[in-house]
């Protein structure tokens, strides 16, 4: 069964002559327990796909379904239990006036769940933070710790799907490694399904099984990570992105072939 099913997703802003189409017929199928990556450059529409799933845009057309339920345009509580999101900027995704405990208790209160205390303790432990973090406020935490709290907040409702919007791109490389390890470990332990947006091919091949490459609102190519690593990409755009990433192995000397 497909955990996430996106069929013919279209989205445009403005109307009449000002209309600009952001997404063109996007099709993505993600199986349960799989992690799927969306890569592309800025403006490719990769984050927009995630935001449609997260109910931030209401005027898309096409078919979206999650865990077998087809999605309405407005957010409902069922979707929140199925699916949660981790954001790019750990400094902007936690409410600055709420302590960690308040932030983690909020979803439990909304869904009227019991055993709040216990759930908070165990989720903090899962993301590698001890109980003393409960009473701290976000400004007392480092970027990596904040991102751990954001992951804990996403997981406390026990969703099956995590939407990851560039979860490590605002972090230092050494912290990025810790968060990626954590995400990988959580996925294996909890059997989560990931849909991750990133511009970093190294990160995507590390964490994801399959990858879709997006450009200007189209999916250019969908390919498995191992295939991508073994130079199995067929589309020139994918090859170009790969080449830019492989620059570690060759001196930069060729400008002309990449001039647009």
């Amino acid at each position: 069964m497909n955990m996430i099913n996106i069929e013919g997703l279209n989205l445009s802003f403005g109307s009449g002559s000002n209309e600009s189409k952001i997404l063109h017929d996007v099709n993505i199928q993600v199986k349960a327990g799989e992690s799927f990556g969306l890569v592309g450059e800025s403006g490719s529409g990769k984050t927009t796909v995630l935001r449609c799933l997260a109910g931030q845009y209401h005027h898309w057309s096409g078919q979206l379904s999650v865990n077998g339920n087809s999605l309405q345009h407005k957010l409902d509580k069922k979707r929140c239990i199925d699916m949660q999101m981790v954001f790019q900027d750990p400094y902007g995704s936690l409410h600055p006036r709420h302590s960690i405990e308040t932030a983690l208790a909020e979803p439990l209160k909304i869904h009227k769940m019991d055993n709040k205390d216990q759930r908070i303790s165990s989720i903090l432990k899962k993301v590698g933070l001890d109980d003393s973090f409960r009473y701290r406020s976000p400004h007392q935490l480092s970027g990596g710790q904040r991102q751990r709290v954001a992951i804990a907040r996403a997981l406390i409702l026990e969703p099956q799907i995590l939407l990851l919007d560039e979860p490590t791109s605002a972090l230092d490389v050494s912290v990025q490694a810790e968060i990626l390890n954590l995400l990988k470990e959580l996925k294996e332990k909890e059997g989560l399904t990931y849909l991750m947006v990133t511009h970093d091919l190294g990160v995507v091949t590390y964490l994801c099984d399959r990858v879709a490459v997006m450009q200007n609102g189209h999916i250019v190519e969908t390919i498995s990570s191992s295939n991508l690593a073994n130079h199995g990409a067929s589309e020139p755009y994918t090859k170009m992105l790969l080449d830019c990433c492989y620059h570690t192995e060759a001196r930069l000397n060729d400008t002309t072939s990449f001039a647009n």
Partner: peptide, 26 residues
Amino acid sequence: KADYIVAVQLQGASSTRIIFRHIVPM
């Protein structure tokens, strides 16, 4: 449009809750 407001929307909070518990304090 702040991420933490989007996050609480995605947790299924009602608009009243978002306004009074998350926006008003700010």
